[in-house]
């Protein structure tokens, strides 16, 4: 079920744009024209947008206005794109980052 707020007592009913299709980690999702990646995914119940590059802990939206970079994703191959500031385009391919190796963390010695 979509989490969109269709009726609002003060703001009125939601004017939905035309539906667009995009993928997140290979799965298909629908967004409406003008929605951000973060909003469209949350509307479909997706909260985890990436994992911490070193610890692997799950992360989602935190500030929703581009300050914190917690929602950064890869969009059509470009990394560090803020899902909260990026409007969905039809056919967009979005993916979460993965845990990255940290070979130099202990001065370059492998454990």
């Amino acid at each position: 079920m979509s989490q969109r707020i269709v009726q609002h007592p003060v703001l009125g009913s939601l004017v939905q744009g035309k539906p667009l299709h995009f993928t997140f980690n290979g799965d298909s999702y629908t967004a409406y024209e003008g929605e951000t990646i973060a909003a469209a995914l949350l509307a479909s119940g997706v909260r985890t947008l990436r994992v911490h590059e070193e610890k692997g802990t799950p992360r989602g939206i935190y500030c929703n206005i581009g300050h914190c970079y917690e929602c950064r994703v890869h969009v059509d191959g470009v990394p560090t794109v803020r899902a909260c500031m990026t409007v969905v385009k039809d056919g967009m391919q979005v993916s979460a980052g993965t845990v990255l190796p940290t070979p130099l963390k202990k001065g370059g010695h492998t454990s």
Binding site: H67, C68, Y69
Partner: peptide
């Protein structure tokens, strides 16, 4: 020193 530059 992370991605947000300490804004948070």
């Amino acid at each position: 020193m992370g991605c947000c530059g300490g804004r948070t």
